[in-house]
Design a protein around this nucleic acid. Structure first.
Lengths: 226, 226
DNA sequence: CGCGTCTTTGAGAAACATCAACAGCGGTGG
DNA sequence: CCACCGCTGTTGATGTTTCTCAAAGACGCG
């Protein structure tokens, strides 16, 4: 259903410019499968493991007391999520699209004993994560709604888009509200902006969850502001 | 504007715009002093070291082509900055207040050989950084201007505030524009909001760079929305 | 087929940005 | 020592974006 490209460079989707993280050489073959709607962990949970996504999509998020939510990242194949801080998880991690996940003991991240190669790979992933988050800051703090949506669609297109003749298309497993909470917008603004792109002929929709990119250059231009 | 200290022995390096890097062996104790306005590194620089702040204040930032800037973080004593990604720095790092900084070879972060204790300390710092950035996401994406400013002042007060009788006060080494770029606002909005807090009796100013917190509870309340 | 949920669309309000002018402050040079 | 200059910060008037509230349409599921 979801096209995963295990051989492709993959990264946290907020990082458009980063080259490939380590190739898929999981230390353990065959991860665990999680269904849509399940949670790998919750905010405040004691962190024992970090998770390497083989297939599917995860959502990392935080909620404020008053109910406001921020989606921190969407995890795609190749991403590693669940980095602990002081032994605890600081986000929710929910499954958006049925996922296969390999878990590693957090000790493999925190000290090199055992598997030095894995240790270094996890550290590299954590450093990548930091850089990815810095990109996302730019997005949240300094871009307008249409730039945010355009950037978001472009990154997804680059990461999971498949070529369909002269166009390319990809699947949006997350809801409009997930996108809104990721970009710091409301669902209405997300919806309106996507509609606007559609009416402008930049993209087309096939159902609410499939995006066809008709004019990548225009999308690129949108993402940079005018 | 970035001045290289003549008194500093500066290596001849292929990076043309790099001011004098701290000439020292890995993990040297004692640190190195940087003056206001200097840059520890620039976006795109090859990352050789990470920096542990002993005193002073640093500013980590990124700029978009169109000139829009996002301040990623302010580095205060105890913080470790300059985590590399794929061997490069992905932010600017400028000195806001004269700083003493200890630099560590990045190898100490990436593999445990040498000093395992330092290695683990740097990893913990990186993981802390991830968590701190997640907090900041909440701020940028889901808080209103007055909540952002109030949160910002509160954090600074907790971190560097000194008790003055029944009140506490702290220094704001960064400009209004730095604060704006950190919080995703304009300088005008920052200024107006601070003025509003002042007129409400929540804070007082002693010059533009000293904040006296008169009513911490009100500030707390402001930071959470109503 | 009916129901609940998600998405889209619309109208109006609010928050924040933008544009513009002025004030404060430190530094410089006469 | 003071007048001037440039820079940063403040304040005001106005404009735009985005949010909020409301309702209708689409879609999946039982």
């Amino acid at each position: 259903m979801y096209v995963t490209l295990p051989s492709e460079p993959s990264e946290i989707i907020t990082v458009p410019h980063l080259p490939a993280p380590p190739p898929q050489t999981p230390s353990q073959k065959g991860g665990h499968t999680w269904k849509t709607g399940q949670s790998l962990y919750h905010e405040g949970d004691t962190a024992k493991r970090v998770y390497e996504i083989v297939s599917g999509v995860l959502r990392l998020s935080r909620v404020l007391e008053n109910g406001r939510r921020q989606v921190i990242a969407f995890g795609y194949p190749g991403d590693i999520v669940g980095f602990p801080c002081n032994g605890k998880h600081h986000t929710e991690c929910d499954v958006i699209a049925k996922a296969e996940v390999i878990s590693h003991n957090k000790d493999a991240l925190e000290n090199g004993e055992g598997d030095p190669a894995l240790h270094e790979r996890l550290i590299a992933a954590a450093l990548n994560e930091i850089s990815a988050m810095q990109d996302h800051f730019m997005m949240l703090g300094r871009k307008k709604a249409h730039e945010k949506i355009a950037s978001f669609l472009m990154v997804l297109n680059q990461r999971v888009g498949v070529s369909m003749g002269s166009f390319s298309q990809f699947h949006l497993p997350m809801s409009r509200s997930d996108i809104a909470d990721f970009l710091g917008l409301t669902t209405e603004t997300v919806s309106r902006t996507i509609t606007h792109f559609r009416k402008s002929g930049i993209i087309a929709l096939d159902g609410v969850q499939t995006v066809v990119v008709l004019d990548p250059a225009a999308l690129q231009e949108m993402s940079e502001g005018e």
